[in-house]
Nucleic acid binder design. Structure first.
Lengths: 235, 235
DNA sequence: GCAAAAGTGTTTTCATTACACCCATGT
DNA sequence: ACATGGGTGTAATGAAAACACTTTTGC
């Protein structure tokens, strides 16, 4: 590290800053969705964009990402992971701003979208319908989506997108939506149940016009224990 | 993104910068090594640290990482991947500096270490012998090592650490060193050869006091073709 | 001829895949 | 009674793991 104090003294040299941007995934109606905002001010006024903000000088990066998420959704303790830092010189039209991209998984039903001071509108958009976004945000979601696909195969994180209690079919639809391929019902159930990370709620679905499904929830404690013993989740 | 131009105007607010740090892996004598520098100036003068530098305002992040690597080793076209951005408020004692960590894989024999203006010494250190480093660099190598382990299993990148021509045993030793577990010789060979990404050089080792091994090299072209057809490398 | 690493196949075990019918509920 | 999704088992296939001896060279 060749860092020197003088670097902080020059106004001009450091016309630069860093931001966080957050790819917030939700799952609803068998579809993967993203929480986007419509920008109220320039640059890219009126365009859809990822929620994000400049990181304050006295704020950890992760903390900034959490703040953005909480301000927008009101939800705490959300699954959140750093993915990649985007730093092309010209990615921001007003100066040198690199952005650290995070993705988060959220139970869409739990969110009450809070009006945001930087946004005209905040909305869940179907992932498949998104084409253009402000800045390099489209590229950012591609990168985060790839990461989500990999993480979903190698860790018990799908549950973060579902309500506390869910049916096996809901879980399967979620995997199918993210991985973009159909799975065999019997094999999926065998596999996921054999992992011993689900606990039955001893409850049934209600009000459905067919045989009601059993409800399950993720047993985080059991998973942690199994992990200690070298168990590896993989789907 | 809540970015506003005013943010660039305040001297105080933006006493901040970003750097890149590079975890440079090499493989020699059945051991995984890192290229480290001994710091010439404060903070952490005299401590071992990762090679890195402040990113210039007109430089892409990847470009900065490449520059650091080339200045130090003189080698071009090296495997280099961004891993994670470290941004704790207090990680740098002189101000707010976040750092984007990269890892690279290099054929250790190819490197002529170039004296570095920021370092008293530059040296390859055995990974296992490294305990303390300047800043949060120890944590950074842990993170990069985890990433390397995963990447090595899911992509044909081990070759980057070896000379152009290598024996199957050398390759196996490399996998064993990185993954920290012994592999069965016959199974390893069966698997790696069945992947069709090695081509025989029709040459033998020379000057060894035992039966000479065949030399192979990585067939990047064949790999690319196979990948097009949906082939997935996994070891 | 001895030390040292190269090279080579088969069997067993386990995980993955493919596949079709009956069940419980609401209307 | 019918429509809808819930729930279940077995056989076939393919991949991974376990395992030991012969070969070639330098000294």
């Amino acid at each position: 590290m060749a860092f020197q104090d003088e670097l902080f003294k020059s106004d001009d040299t450091y016309k630069s800053a860093f931001s966080v941007d957050n790819v917030i995934f939700g799952f609803d109606n068998d579809n993967l969705k993203l929480l986007l905002i419509k920008r109220k001010s320039d640059p890219f006024r009126g365009n859809w964009a990822l929620p994000g903000d400049i990181v304050s000088p006295s704020e950890d990066l992760d903390q900034a990402a959490i703040r953005v998420l909480e301000q927008l959704t009101g939800v705490k303790n959300v699954f959140l992971e750093q993915v990649h830092t985007f730093g092309k010189v010209d990615r921001h039209p007003r100066g040198r701003v690199i952005t650290i991209a995070y993705y988060s998984l959220i139970n869409i039903k739990q969110v009450n979208i809070v009006a945001d001071s930087f946004a005209d509108k905040v909305a869940w958009k179907e992932l498949r319908s998104i084409d253009k976004l402000a800045f390099d945000h489209f590229q950012i979601i591609q990168t985060c989506l790839k990461r989500l696909r990999r993480d979903l195969k190698f860790g018990p994180i799908g549950f973060e997108l579902l309500p506390e209690k869910f049916t096996l079919t809901e879980l399967q639809r979620l995997y199918e939506a993210v991985l973009e391929k159909e799975l065999d019902k019997r094999n999926f159930r065998k596999k996921i149940l054999s992992m011993n990370v689900l606990k039955s709620c001893h409850e049934l679905q209600k009000g459905v016009a067919h045989r009601p499904a059993k409800l399950y929830s993720f047993d985080a404690q059991r998973y942690e224990e199994a992990k200690e013993e070298g168990y590896i989740f993989e789907l």
